[in-house]
Nucleic acid binder design. Structure first.
Length: 272
DNA sequence: AGGCGTTCCTGGGGGC
DNA sequence: TGCCCCCAGGAACGCC
């Protein structure tokens, strides 16, 4: 479920509650939730497990400790909440106990979500591409990334090793906004359209973060939910009229993913 | 290199 | 109501 804006929203909510707290331990409810370490490994170094920072990299929530980072990936259905005395939700996969009697709950219906332990960001940085909201994500760099490859544009945008943070929803929204058909071949798209795609990606992600994401995220903190779902333009709009041209939005399968398209507005580029 | 199918899981919705 | 099938916003892996 969560893409960059949803993960950023989670981080924004958790930050003030976690920074400065100490982690007492991690309770494992679903054994596979810890991907590359065992709970006791947290105590290998004489770390007091104080949370120094919480931030996002790609779709990971990074909890910065003294000697490690915990990287939490929500995958499809992961959710984080902070609770005190309430019972754990049904699909809790792990619980991080904090020094103020609060608990960070990792709830995950489909159990795809994982927690990783690393010394620093090197491993993640080596596998994940540029942050689309960073200053270095220039229009020129974006064009280079796209035009030097001969790939399906939707698949390329979903590839986290090229650009990190986009998922199925925001890719469809960005391609619609820039008038590019998702089955276009990357290297054959015009530079003008790529300029528009670059702008669309940034503005859509920013809008979505401002709306606290698309997904309904259930924070025990304040109960706020994502509002971007009401602002989606094509995703999930099969049979609706295109906001541009009134043609019907259709649903396709592209790269194995449900894909929403206005065939009239979104030009397909297949050759130079 | 890139595309494709499979896999990890549970639950919701549509069709009958 | 019940059952079955398909679908789901992620991503790693192996194979061609």
């Amino acid at each position: 479920m969560p893409e960059l804006p949803e993960v950023q929203t989670v981080v924004n909510h958790l930050k003030s509650q976690l920074i400065g707290r100490r982690i007492l331990n991690i309770e494992i409810i679903w054994p596979k939730v810890l991907d590359n370490f065992k709970p006791e490994e947290l105590f290998t170094y004489k770390s007091n497990l104080k949370v120094n920072d919480v931030f996002r990299r790609a779709k990971f929530i990074i909890i910065q400790l003294d000697f490690y980072i915990l990287a939490i990936h929500l995958r499809m259905t992961g959710k984080l909440h902070i609770i005190k005395d309430e019972p754990f939700p049904k699909h809790t996969s792990s619980v991080i106990n904090l020094d103020n009697n609060y608990k960070l709950i990792f709830e995950d219906v489909r159990k795809f979500g994982r927690i990783y332990l690393y010394r620093n960001l090197d491993v993640i940085n080596s596998k994940y591409g540029i942050e689309p909201l960073s200053n270095s994500f220039s229009s020129k760099l974006f064009q280079d990334l796209i035009l030097t490859k001969k790939r399906n544009i939707k698949g390329l945008l979903l590839d986290q090793s090229i650009i990190s943070g986009l998922g199925n929803i925001y890719v469809d929204e960005s391609l619609w906004m820039s008038g590019i058909h998702p089955n276009s071949i990357s290297c054959s798209i015009s530079k003008l359209k790529l300029k528009r795609l670059h702008e669309s990606i940034i503005s859509i992600l920013q809008e979505a973060i401002a709306s606290k994401g698309t997904t309904i995220i259930d924070f025990s903190v304040n109960g706020e939910s994502g509002r971007y779902s009401s602002q989606l333009r094509v995703y999930g709009k099969k049979g609706h009229q295109c906001l541009n041209c009134k043609n019907n939005i259709i649903k396709l399968r592209v790269c194995g993913r449900g894909t929403y398209v206005c065939k009239k507005c979104q030009k397909i580029y297949t050759k130079r």
